[in-house]
Every structure is written in structure tokens, then in C-alpha cells.
Nucleic acid binder design. Structure first.
Length: 416
RNA sequence: CGGGGCGUGGCUCAGCCUGGCUAGAGCGCUUGGUUUGGGACCAAGAUGUCACAGGUUCAAAUCCUGUCGCCCCGACCA
């Protein structure tokens, strides 16, 4: 695709309103546009990364036999009265009223709605177990939105819900989701940890959080170097009494064994094979999809800009033609792109009539894993220069070797 | 919600303390020309209710009051 057509409004200077690294880089790279405090539009590059992340999530959820659905943004308030959570959530709920004076809210989460759906359709143990998930925008009136997508009022979440006939089934689904989550965060290129957590306002018993170490993290854990474990309390290590260090973490996922809190409150019962009517046993599993963009960037940048992990990069190769009006260069670049694209590798061609420096700086800023350069050296030697964004490794290759190099490099990454 | 900071062309900012002619710079943008491997150069241009409202004054971007918006720290938070 062409840089000039994708719509990539990069900024030369750090935006005044940006605070942390990820926020600054996402704004500068033209991934995001701030509309208001805690409210962001995703520009085309941002959407590409969001879609990549969503597809990683879909792959791993589907592999655990979870099925995607899409619930509603507008939710009737009565739903929330049944479970009593209207009191817990009142502060963060954004409420609206329609022309018939019906009270609605913009969904802050979907346990109530999915339970209504389960109640309506699940009548027998023969329909269980089942896991449903969605990737959707949630709305929360945060007291203090901050750090761009880390805490915003409108954000994208993947939320999954499991339905089982007994505790063993729930435990099995929970394990599957735990496994899927580890795979998802690995694929997103994150350095993350999994810890047991409080279930809080969600209810239920067992719960795990997925946290990524980052300077701007809002959760704090204490790490014991000798035991190589994290703890919630700031005290000598409970295991070896050694000193601990403080670590800030961004929460990117949280899973809960809910049990029957919602099914009992909302009347989601099924008939078991012993003829007894029982409440469905539920679990819920959340990932902050838009928050992941920020979390990934917080962990993957250098002084030149973003360094996207392969699987969620907006493009795999950025082609820089120095002297775009040179027909030979453009033809050579176009031919390389054609061959790469037919091999399933996504390429961005910087077709702008700008000095080389601008194109290089922007290529680094955008963080696309490989940069292919066509310029004076190509005209002299017919070799394409490939630069690996993460390592700054540069290598000059003929067209065939170039394609082979990229394929091998990308394959090697996929196997990591 | 408490504390602090900020709001001046599209962007980043200077000017404000100590009020005074047509409100500035850099970048970006437009036109023409020269460039073309690292945010290039020359020339000519366009773009501002100085966040908003009120007040003080002969005179307000500048002083005073209020409001709104944005950011940071804290509190809060699946």
C-alpha cells in the first residue's frame, strides 16, 4: 500500500498533551487522534494494529472452541438492577435516556447481558459447556483517564464468558482460557506475568491477572530476586525474608471463576441429566485490547520510535525509495513489493516526494519490522538494502536473496 | 474530588512578571525555482475571535473575577 493513500499524519514534535512514551509515539506516528480527554479515534495505522491484535486473540480463542458473538452497546438499566451491580457500577456508568424515557447505559461490561442470553437459550445440560466471546467497545466514566489508551473512557475489550454444568467444567474452561491468554500475550510480543488476584466487584472465587511491567503501570507488585516471585505486599519476601523491589505493572487481562452469582441473580438455570434444575456455572475472561497497543509500545520502543513485534505490526516491510521520480528505482521497488505481497508479506511503500531523511525518520517512528531501501546504491550495485528495525542490522541483497532473507527472518520469528 | 501546571496560526513554543504602534519565531501548508542517501535551499505567499465570558484602564495576549478545556500528582478503579 502507498504511504500517501493510507493516511499517516506523522508529527515532527512531541504533542503537548502527551505524557508517557506510548502515548507520545502513538500520536506522533499517526496511529491515534485525541478527540477529548480519555477519548481517542484510531487512525488507519492504529486500526491495522488493532485488527492484528484482534486476530491474534481470535486465533487463540477459537482454538479453545470459544465462539465469537457481538453484544450491544446500549443496555437497559433493569438488567443491572437484577444483579444489584447498578450500585457498584453507578459511578462509572454513562447513562442515556431515549425518547420513550427508557433508562439505558452504554455498556461498561457485559456479564449481565450475556447472562440474559444464556437464560434465554440454554435449557439443558446438553447445550453445555459453551464459551462465548466478543471484541467490543466499552464505556466507563473514569474519574481520571490517563496515559492515552491505558485508561480511557471508551476502549476496546475482548470479553469471554464460559458456561458449565459443574465446577469441574468451569475449572477446565478456566485452564483453557489461562493457556489461551498466555499465548495471546506472547504473540503480542509482551513480557508479562500471571498472578492470582482478587475478584473484587466481579464476584466469584478464583481469579488471575495478566500484568506487563512498565514505567507507567498503575498496579504495583514487589519482586524477590532470589525467589524470582512477585508479591502484592510491600514487606520482606514472605518466602525467604529477603529484600524486594517495587515494580509497576499495566493490567492487560483478568480472568475470573464467577460461579453462580449472575446465573442465580438473573435466573439462568438449566436442567441437568439428573432432572434437577441448576444455575449455570460461569467464568469470565477479559483483555484490554486497545490498552494492549499502549502496553506493547511501552515495552517496545527505542530513541527512534516504535518497534512493533512482528505479529501485530501494521506492515511487515516499509519500502523507502530515495528519489521516487526515478523510474528505474520505482520499477524495482514495485517489483519487489509485488513479489513480497504474493508471498503474503504486507508492504508499505513510502511514495511521498520528500527528502530521504524524512522518510527514514518516519520509517523508524512507525516501527515497521523491516525497511527496504532503494536509492543510489541500488542503481550502482542492483542490491537492495534491508534494515532490521529492532537491531539496526543492515544488509545489501539482490532481489531474490532479499525475498528469501525476509521470508526466513519472518518464519524464524513466527517460531519463537 | 483535593493539590499543581498549562491554554497564543495546522504543530511546537516565545511574548505575560513590569499593560502601549500593524502579535512573533521555528516547523508545516501554497506557488515558482534549485535539490534528492539522512527532517535540504532560495524567493514569494496564505493562515490568529491570543480558550470563553465579564471587569479594571485612555489602552488588555499581558492585570482581576468566573467558566470551560487539557496535562501531571494523589484519591478512585474488572
Amino acid at each position: 500500500m502507498l504511504f500517501s493513500k493510507v493516511f499517516i499524519p506523522t508529527l515532527r514534535e512531541d504533542p503537548h498533551s502527551a505524557e508517557c512514551k506510548s502515548h507520545t509515539l502513538l500520536l506522533r506516528g499517526g496511529f491515534l487522534s485525541m478527540i477529548s480527554s480519555g477519548i481517542y479515534a484510531y487512525l488507519p495505522l492504529g486500526v491495522r494494529v488493532l485488527n492484528k491484535i484482534s486476530n491474534v486473540i481470535r486465533t487463540h480463542m477459537n482454538s479453545k472452541e470459544a465462539s465469537e458473538l457481538l453484544m450491544t452497546v446500549l443496555q437497559p438499566l433493569e438488567m443491572w438492577e437484577k444483579t444489584g451491580r447498578i450500585k457498584d457500577m453507578e459511578e462509572v456508568m454513562l447513562r442515556v435516556r431515549d425518547r420513550k424515557d427508557r433508562d439505558l447505559c452504554l455498556g461498561p461490561t457485559h456479564e449481565e447481558e450475556i447472562t440474559e442470553i444464556a437464560k434465554k437459550y440454554i435449557a439443558s445440560y446438553k447445550q453445555l459447556p459453551v464459551v462465548l466471546y466478543q471484541i467490543q467497545t466499552k464505556f466507563r466514566d473514569e474519574t481520571r483517564p490517563r496515559y492515552g489508551l491505558v485508561r480511557s473512557c471508551e476502549f476496546i475489550m475482548k470479553d469471554a464468558y464460559s458456561f458449565d454444568r459443574d465446577q469441574e467444567g468451569l475449572a477446565a474452561n478456566y485452564e483453557k482460557m489461562l493457556d489461551a491468554y498466555q499465548n495471546i500475550f506472547s504473540d503480542c510480543g509482551l513480557d508479562f506475568i500471571t498472578v492470582e488476584a482478587d475478584s473484587g466487584v466481579m464476584g466469584g472465587s478464583v481469579s488471575h491477572e495478566f500484568l506487563v511491567p512498565a514505567e507507567i503501570g498503575e498496579d504495583i507488585l514487589y519482586y524477590c530476586q532470589s525467589c524470582q516471585k512477585y508479591f502484592r505486599e510491600d514487606a520482606p519476601c514472605p518466602q525467604c525474608q529477603g529484600a524486594t523491589t517495587q515494580n509497576r505493572m499495566i493490567e492487560v487481562g483478568h480472568i475470573f471463576q464467577l460461579g453462580t452469582k449472575y446465573s442465580e441473580a438473573q435466573g439462568a438455570y438449566f436442567l441437568d441429566n439428573d432432572g434437577v434444575r441448576k444455575p449455570v456455572i460461569m467464568g469470565c475472561y477479559g483483555i484490554g485490547v486497545s490498552r494492549l497497543l499502549s502496553a506493547v509500545v511501552e515495552q517496545n520502543f527505542d530513541e527512534k520510535g516504535i518497534v512493533w513485534p512482528h505479529r501485530i505490526a501494521p506492515f511487515m516491510v516499509s519500502v523507502v525509495v530515495v528519489g521516487i521520480e526515478n523510474e528505474e528505482l520505482l520499477a524495482a521497488a514495485t517489483e519487489l513489493i509485488r513479489r513480497l505481497e504474493s508471498a503474503g508479506i504486507e508492504v508499505l511503500l513510502d511514495d511521498r516526494d520528500h527528502p530521504a531523511g524524512v522518510k527514514f525518520k518516519d520509517a523508524y517512528l512507525l516501527g515497521i519490522p523491516y525497511i527496504a531501501i532503494f536509492g543510489k546504491k541500488y542503481l550502482e550495485t542492483k542490491k537492495i538494502e534491508i534494515e532490521v528495525r529492532k537491531t539496526s542490522q543492515k544488509i545489501a541483497l539482490g532481489s531474490d536473496e532479499c525475498i528469501e532473507f525476509l521470508k526466513n527472518h519472518i518464519d524464524a520469528y513466527q517460531k519463537l
